[in-house]
């Protein structure tokens, strides 16, 4: 680090930190869905990354359509693409729950394997439909370019947009979990499934809705993902391990924990990346996370429960 002046170092930290925030956004959106699903029904969804890719391809599809059919709409299509990404992933999630997941409740290790099979099928489906090559969306002009608070710091606008989107979604999830009827039902079912059934909560439909919403949020993550990277059939698989670690590290079931762990993993990786190679940064981050998990196996923010 000796080669840098303090000012340069600060700028590096700011920029890498911001790059980390984009990663943080995608990880958090992915992890939110995964955490909700795991918390509600102890289902490990290995195909979660593929639901993200559904959102990404939906965005890509809409952007190509707009470019060819209605170029004047290019500046606004994202406002349609994000809900559409959510909806597509939501619908597929709904179907997958009905066909596959509901047979696997309370067999967490088995859900892990079955959803891995699902992930393989979805990847091949993407490849068959969209081709093996990675695709990129055309960004609206207002999302291009960057914001330069000082000469040395250069922050891309799309990163800021993703951040805003993530904040909205996270706030939305928090609102739904803690303020809506659905959230109340979810929390009931999480703490005592039999009792919830006994007091008239249809736990089956709560499960299905929760799974679909979790997948839908992954879809939004996919829409966000298109603005920072190109999309391929296996893009989701690249994020799945990191996302799982985020969930586990944060203490499954804790919204705050998920946020904190997504933030620290993304930031750690991003800042390290500047000083050592990207792959080594990832190795180091994963090792630290595993190390900390050894000290706190229940995660950062797990609550103590009397059993």
């Amino acid at each position: 680090m000796g080669d840098f002046t303090t000012e340069e170092l600060l700028a590096i930290f700011a920029m890498q930190g911001f790059a980390g925030l984009s990663l943080f956004s995608v990880l958090l959106l992915m992890a939110l869905g995964l955490a909700i699903i795991y918390g509600q029904m102890r289902v490990i969804n290995m195909a979660h990354g593929e639901f993200m890719v559904i959102g990404a391809y939906t965005t890509y599809f809409i952007s190509t359509l707009v470019v060819s059919q209605a170029p004047w709409f290019l500046d606004y299509y994202v406002f349609i693409a994000v809900p559409a990404a959510f909806l597509m992933a939501f619908i597929v999630g709904w179907i997958v729950e009905a066909v596959l997941i509901r047979h696997l409740y309370h067999r967490p290790l088995d859900t892990l394997l079955a959803t891995w099979g699902l992930a393989l099928i979805m990847q091949q489906a993407f490849r068959s439909i969209f081709g093996a090559r990675e695709v990129s969306v055309r960004l609206p002009s207002w999302l291009q370019g960057s914001y330069q608070p000082t000469l040395m710091i250069d922050i891309p606008i799309n990163g800021i947009a993703i951040m805003v989107l993530t904040l909205f979604v996270t706030a939305g999830v928090a609102w739904m979990m803690y303020r809506s009827r659905w959230g109340l039902r979810v929390r009931c079912t999480v703490s005592n499934r039999e009792m919830s059934g006994a007091v008239g909560i249809n736990t089956r439909s709560v499960d299905r809705l929760t799974f679909a919403v979790g997948c839908g949020i992954a879809g939004i993550a996919g829409a966000a993902f298109t603005t920072i990277s190109s999309t391929g059939p296996t893009s989701g698989a690249l994020y799945i391990v990191d996302t799982f670690l985020v969930v586990v590290f944060g203490g499954a079931g804790s919204l705050l924990g998920t946020m904190a762990s997504a933030f620290s993993i993304a930031q750690g990786q991003s800042i390290l990346e500047f000083f050592i190679s990207g792959s080594m940064a990832k190795v180091l981050t994963l090792l630290v996370v595993i190390g900390i998990l050894m000290l706190r196996p229940e995660g950062l923010f797990a609550s103590k429960v009397r059993r």
């Binding site: 596959l100 047979h103 696997l104 394997l113 079955a114 099979g117 393989l120 099928i121 990847q123 490849r127």
Partner: peptide
């Protein structure tokens, strides 16, 4: 093309 579909389905069927 079909291999991933096949092995994915095998995985699901076996587990289920």
């Amino acid at each position: 093309q079909l291999w991933l579909f096949l092995i994915g389905s095998v995985f699901i069927v076996v587990v289920l």
